[in-house]
Computed example of a mutant assay.
Amino acid sequence: MKLNRTTQRTVEILKLISRTSEGATLDDLCEKLGLPKTSAYDIVTTLAEMGMVNVTRGQKQKFTIGLMAYRIGVNYTNNLDFIGIIEPVLKAFSKEVGKTVFFGIPSDHHVVYICKFEPENPIITTATVGSKNPMYCTSLGKVILAYSSEEAREQMINRLKFIQFTERTIKNRGQLLEELKKVRERGYAFDAREMEEHMQCVGAPVFDRDGNVLGAISISSLYKPSDDYEALGQLVSRKGMEVSRLLGFLGKI
């Protein structure tokens, strides 16, 4: 079968941009893919116009993956069979704990909320299905980082910009790496009022059949000093393993 050359180049450009932590310049695309500059320019400007890539202007323009590509990816994920498997389990879990339960997956250096399950009288949360937040200050993101391969973790961390949302937000790479060690030791992560002053979240990883971290689940609630968040962490960790088993995971982490 004869493949369309322009389509091939477009896909190659998107793949390269998605793997480049700081964004790719036009020269990067031409050099690494062996493309004529005029052809690469025409493709990437069209992708930018369609929202498939973002353009950062400076001494040289840099291109990163855009919102439209992300939305397409979310639509793909929403159609995966595993969503139908985990939905009833997490819906029942939300009812059991009386708190909002999320399932999220990695998208570059963000976590994207794929599912949201609420109890009968839910609290108002800013996170909605399809929205995304930074990995370093969310319980979902922290466990995904902690259990990703070293190479994937480095790529994600290298793209992070440490913005202070509250006084408790992790401030730098060193603090994050120290936090990720604790996550691995206990098996769950906290968002200890790092994104929103009044919200406390606890998250745990979900693994696929090969033992790779597929995403994470979390419990979100209003912060209460009297709540035992360690016990809640152990509970969500067990539920994360239960979900992983449903998806075919048989090993130990």
Rank of each mutant, 00 (worst) to 15 (best):
Q155I: 07
P134A: 04
P119G: 08
K161N: 13
I163W: 13
V129E: 14
L140Q: 08
F117P: 00
S148D: 14
G141I: 00
F117E: 05
R159E: 13
G141T: 06
N121C: 04
T138R: 02
A127K: 05
I163A: 13
I144M: 11
P134R: 11
R159C: 09
S149Y: 01
C137R: 05
A146K: 00
I124H: 10
S149K: 05
Y147A: 02
S149W: 04
G130W: 02
K142G: 00
G141K: 05
L145K: 11
C137D: 07
N158C: 13
M135P: 07
A127L: 14
V143Y: 01
E120A: 13
T126P: 00
G141L: 01
S139L: 10
E120S: 15
S139K: 06
R153I: 02
L145Y: 10
A152L: 13
C137G: 05
E118K: 07
K142M: 03
K132F: 11
P119I: 01
N121Q: 11
T138Q: 11
V129K: 12
E150Y: 06
Y147R: 06
R153G: 04
E150L: 15
I144Y: 00
I144A: 04
K132Q: 11
L160Q: 15
S139N: 05
K142V: 01
N121L: 07
K161M: 12
E154H: 09
E151N: 11
L140S: 03
R159A: 15
I163R: 15
R159K: 15
L160G: 11
N121K: 08
